[in-house]
């Protein structure tokens, strides 16, 4: 179980669900075989917050083992709209990991947002929704939702907000986050391209004492290209990622959805 929830690349390599992670502790022959309620359905997600927008993206492949179950199984969900088609929603949730848990998590959060709207007569803020999602996840601390969730929306000031979670509800607000199978491939790329990590101005100092490149908020166009590049890279190197790219761009005028093709091999 520990290996399953670990995102540590040292243990899991590039995080295949089919891996040969070293098994620690269990003495040979003392294994207990019961129903295993979890599987990893692969796939990857990614969210980036901009100055006045947030972008959420995820591939649409659903795998189990080496099989592709579906080439179009969205991982991104609009949350908290008035109606079932979520036309007026302002928050996006992405879930990756065990698809059934992800689906259950999404439906629970959406039901809670709908009850909130019914009771208070106004939509839930991203901040409140983010806190609530953490509580939901922690509520199943001892039989966790095996899902890496990311929540995106616009905060009270209209700035892009991205909240990322672990399966048991630990969360933080971030500028960007990659989740799922190819998280370990995408995240370093984002560190470099969004937060300009390890980017220095040439000849700005002696030896290694160089001046860091100044951070600036990325434009929507830049981020869209970044997302596409990140996924093209992940598709190339990870077998569980591919088929389609689903992107949701959250702005003050609503949520725009974009579907792009990815390699299907």
């Amino acid at each position: 179980m520990a290996a399953m929830f670990s995102q540590n690349p040292l243990m899991n390599g590039p995080n295949y669900s089919v891996n040969d992670a070293p098994r620690i502790g269990a003495p040979e022959g003392a294994r207990e075989h019961r129903f295993d309620p979890y599987t990893d359905n692969g796939g990857s997600t990614l969210a980036i917050a901009g100055a006045d927008f947030a972008i959420m993206a995820g591939d649409t492949r659903l795998t189990s083992g080496y099989s592709i179950n579906s080439r179009f199984h969205p991982k991104l969900f609009k949350i908290g709209g008035t109606t079932a088609d979520q036309e007026d929603a302002t928050i996006v949730l992405s879930v990756v990991g065990f698809a059934a848990d992800g689906e259950a998590l999404k439906e629970r959060l959406d039901a809670i947002c709908k009850m909130y709207r019914y009771r208070h007569g106004k939509p839930m803020s991203v901040k409140a929704c983010a806190q609530r999602l953490s509580t939901i996840l922690y509520g199943k601390r001892f039989f966790p939702y095996y899902a890496y969730a990311i929540l995106a929306g616009l905060d009270e000031e209209g700035k892009g907000a991205v909240y990322s979670y672990d399966p048991v509800g630990s969360y933080e607000r971030e500028q960007c986050r990659a989740g799922g199978a190819a998280a370990s491939l995408i995240m370093p790329f984002l560190d470099n391209q969004v937060n300009f990590k390890n980017q220095y101005i040439p000849n700005s100092g002696e030896g290694h004492a160089l001046v860091e490149r100044e951070r600036r908020p990325l434009t929507r166009r830049e981020v869209e290209v970044l997302v596409k590049d990140a996924f093209d890279g992940a598709v190339e190197r990870h077998i569980e990622v591919g088929d389609g790219l689903q992107m949701m761009i959250i702005t003050k005028s609503g949520i725009e959805e974009v579907l792009l093709p990815l390699k299907k091999d």
């Binding site: 599987t39 099989s67 059934a100």
Partner: peptide, 20 residues
């Protein structure tokens, strides 16, 4: 496990390997 998905064609068990 309650995992649900759709596709233009579907197969269970060995069908997923041979028929799909």
């Amino acid at each position: 496990r309650g995992t649900a998905f759709t596709s233009p064609s579907l197969a269970t068990g060995y069908g997923a390997m041979l028929a799909q």
